[in-house]
Design a protein around this nucleic acid. Structure first.
Length: 321
DNA sequence: AATCAGCTCAACCGCCTACTT
DNA sequence: GAAGTAGGCGGTTGAGCTGAT
């Protein structure tokens, strides 16, 4: 059931619009509305196809279009919505008044996507691109990317988010390496939220792992060698024979149950997109894992690691479900 | 000042879906 | 139910801009 593209009709102009053409289109739509886009060009005296007119109007001439740079909130909203909807640009645009799907798509491809890649985050799944074997070797790049983003200082709040993501990813990657290295026992958490600091297997196994890393990351092993009893975390840990990998830091995999994903993410979106929402709606990440932050405050001597973990604890987790 | 490379974004292309005949 | 049409959407392109050399 094919049909010829409307612009195949001979003699129709293509390419950039002139101010005169813009004015004709604006005048016509103001007077008559767009009606049938196919019929519009003739009525408006334009030598364009209807499709071209529609695009010009919706992406550029519409009076309610917001121009200029994206705000930090808008960027965060785009990231959140993209994690839920994927490349459904028109749906994403529906949550951003005044922004067009085309504009959002361009912004994603030229700015956000690049930024995520730079931070080692897969822009498609928004999961950390974890290479378990080389993660430690990649630490300098991860941190450099995060710090570089801070230096750019283009958009402070977004940069902070980006930095925290990179740092959290770094920690998560290390956790995964540590966890995977330990084959003697494995653990499963019954905690309702599996996230960075809900990695109970990490905590439990550290005494045997920590010595391997002690020389290189003394302060980290200092932290993680804390006896589990010293934590007031509600996490309950049980022994488990077959599970030797920790839960993923994020669960944005398209393979997962879409319904569950949608339900969870809907809440997430609401929290991020409703800028006037209750300010007391703290991230569950922070709430659930405050004990970690407390312990770290008390015990961590290395200010660098302390800073990383503090930020991770205190800032909303942008991509977590 | 000239050239080049990389980036941005408006516009196009082709496919898909909903609706009509 | 099949065919035709229009609008919408996402992917891609390329002209123009900008900064580096």
């Amino acid at each position: 059931m094919g049909r010829l593209p409307c612009c195949d009709e001979s003699g129709l102009k293509k390419g950039p619009w002139t101010p005169e053409e813009d004015q004709k289109l604006i005048n016509h739509i103001r007077k008559h509305g767009h009606g049938s886009w196919r019929a519009l060009p003739k009525q408006a005296g334009l030598n364009r196809c209807g499709k071209s007119c529609r695009l010009r109007w919706t992406n550029y001439l519409r009076p309610d279009i917001k121009r200029g740079n994206f705000t930090a909130e808008e960027e965060q909203t785009i990231i959140n919505l993209h994690s839920l909807l994927g490349n459904k640009w028109s749906s994403i645009a529906g949550h951003l008044p005044g922004r067009t799907d085309n504009e959002i798509k361009n912004y994603w491809n030229t700015h956000i996507r690049k930024k995520l890649i730079q931070m080692g985050i897969d822009p498609v799944t928004q999961r950390p691109r974890t290479d378990h074997l080389n993660v430690l070797a990649a630490l300098p790049q991860l941190l450099a990317a995060a710090n570089f983003n801070n230096l750019l200082n283009l958009n402070q709040s977004v940069q902070l988010d980006a930095t925290s993501v990179a740092k959290a990813q770094l920690l998560h990657s290390m956790i995964q390496v540590l966890s995977n290295n330990n084959t003697s026992s494995s653990l499963e958490t019954h905690h309702t939220n599996n996230n960075l600091f809900g990695q109970s297997s990490f905590l439990e196994n550290l005494p045997s792992i920590g010595e391997n890393l002690y020389d290189q990351t003394q302060s980290l092993s200092h932290i993680v060698n804390q006896p589990l009893d010293s934590f007031t975390s509600p996490i309950r840990v049980v022994a488990h024979q077959d599970q030797n990998s920790i839960p993923p830091l994020v669960s944005a995999s398209p393979d997962e149950s879409k319904q569950t994903q949608m339900m969870v993410k809907d809440k997430e979106i609401l929290r991020h997109t409703d800028h006037t929402s209750n300010p007391s709606s703290t991230s569950t990440f922070t709430q659930d894992h405050q004990p970690w932050c407390d312990i770290i405050d008390d015990e961590a001597s290395d200010s660098y690691w302390k800073e990383i973990i503090e930020q991770t604890c205190s800032e909303p987790w942008p991509f977590r479900e």
